[in-house]
């Protein structure tokens, strides 16, 4: 099996006079490196210039609020169950009177933590969520000095009302359709027979 067309058989042949002179070879090499002065750089100058990412990139999570600014999460724990890396922990609380503008459901997450070192960004939490509350976004998890700092609480996860995070790319009609049907698996979406059965 030939893996590359640049393979060369190693031989023990004597050098020719040109090769022994070394200087022609050196000049040839310098021309090759010199020609790279005029070539395009491979570097993506990261903080100033970002590599394009897929529209459905799975990065840092966001906990959505509804249009009135109330948190959508009802602390059902489906995401934590779905999480294969067991990165999500939460503690539920009961909504008091007068907190309707803060929490949409009667039960809400008092503590909601995702350990970003454990998370594998698979997106199963988002798929499991019945309230459209958690989404993966195109943002990245920042570098930190301490391992503890990677446990993101509600302060970092819940979106701010003045800086809402657009997740429409992850709510394509197909996805919305998919979410309507209970018990449907990913690969069954385009299978008309299965789709009919589940309906």
């Amino acid at each position: 099996m030939q893996l590359t067309n640049r393979r060369k058989v190693v031989s023990d042949k004597k050098q020719t006079v040109m090769e022994q002179l070394y200087l022609p070879g050196l000049l040839k090499g310098m021309l090759i490196t010199g020609s790279h002065l005029f070539k395009k750089r491979a570097t993506v100058d990261y903080p100033d210039e970002k590599r394009p990412i897929a529209p459905i990139y799975r990065g840092l999570h966001v906990l959505k609020r509804d249009d009135n600014g109330a948190e959508r999460c009802t602390s059902c724990g489906m995401c934590a169950v779905a999480c294969p890396a067991e990165a999500i922990t939460m503690e539920s609380g009961e909504r008091k009177k007068g907190e309707e503008h803060l929490y949409r459901e009667e039960k809400y997450a008092k503590i909601y933590e995702i350990n970003m070192l454990r998370c594998i960004f698979c997106g199963l939490c988002e798929e499991a969520c019945p309230k459209e509350a958690i989404f993966l976004t195109d943002r990245l998890v920042d570098a930190e000095y301490e391992r503890d700092d990677f446990i993101y609480g509600k302060d970092k996860l819940v979106e701010k009302m003045d800086q809402r995070i657009d997740v429409t790319k992850r709510q394509t009609p197909e996805v919305l359709e998919f979410k309507k049907i209970k018990g449907l698996k990913h690969n069954e979406l385009h299978d008309p027979k299965k789709l009919k059965d589940k309906h």
Partner: peptide, 10 residues
Amino acid sequence: GWLQDRYGPK
């Protein structure tokens, strides 16, 4: 950096 298609310190 230039010879290696990089930026070098910047």
